[in-house]
């Protein structure tokens, strides 16, 4: 039986699937932030070999395609002997991927804090964790907000790749709806529009925050 699909039918199905895009983005971003913070602490810590490891971790995840990371998570978890649901592999790979990028973004912010702040807090007898908690991070946070918000948009776009390992989110729904309706132009146009609606507020607020928080350092 042939069915006619109205544009509203298409849009409704895509919006239902977009919930999974949003959920996966949130999980990946929050998980990535937690792991990323741990990587950051190791990356700028005192142990040299641990620093090298964190550096290697970042290099590995920034230097390889996210798609390969998804494949490796999917098939690698499979090697452990259980049936891997796509959402698990997708979440794991995206968390590890986000962590690498966030750790690197935040490292730049922490390193922008003057050395004197470290020395002053050390002279007060603070340990590494205390220095981070009370002196460095509060200052670094201020410059870290805009690029972090900007990266959250990358996470949303990154979730599109999880369609390839079979997680049904917005992109996968787009392909499925296309196969049912034979209207790729409309469907992918709408998919792009939904992604735009999700991402644009993030990228715009990142820009606005950058302008606001950077006001004292602007030269023109």
């Amino acid at each position: 039986m042939m069915m006619e699909f109205t544009t509203w039918d298409i849009l409704r199905n895509l919006l239902l699937a977009a919930r999974w895009t949003v959920l996966l983005s949130l999980v990946s971003f929050v998980g990535g932030a937690i792991v990323g913070l741990a990587v950051l602490f190791v990356r700028i810590g005192h142990r040299r070999w641990a620093r090298r490891c964190a550096e290697g971790y970042v290099e590995l995840f920034q230097g390889t395609p996210l798609l390969m990371q998804l494949f490796l998570a999917f098939f690698g978890l499979g090697l452990l002997g259980f049936d891997v649901p796509a959402w698990l592999a997708a979440g794991l790979a995206l968390i590890l991927w986000s962590a690498a990028f966030l750790a690197e973004i935040w490292r730049g912010c922490v390193e922008a804090i003057q050395r004197g702040q470290w020395e002053a807090s050390a002279s007060l007898g603070m340990g590494y964790l205390q220095q981070m908690r009370w002196v460095i991070l509060p200052q670094a946070l201020r410059i870290a907000v805009p690029p972090t918000v900007g990266f959250s948009m990358q996470v949303v776009k990154g979730t599109a790749l999880t369609s390839i390992i079979g997680f049904v989110e917005l992109s996968k729904a787009g392909t499925m709806v296309t196969n049912a309706t034979f209207q790729p132009f409309t469907v992918y146009g709408l998919v792009a529009l939904i992604y735009f609606v999700l991402c644009w507020p993030l990228s715009k607020s990142s820009q606005i925050l950058e302008r606001k928080l950077n006001a004292p350092h602007r030269h023109h």
Binding site: M153, K157, L161, I164, G174, A192, Y195, C199
Partner: peptide, 8 residues
């Protein structure tokens, strides 16, 4: 900039 490469 606000849509995934895959969709493009």
């Amino acid at each position: 900039r606000n849509t995934p490469f895959l969709i493009q």
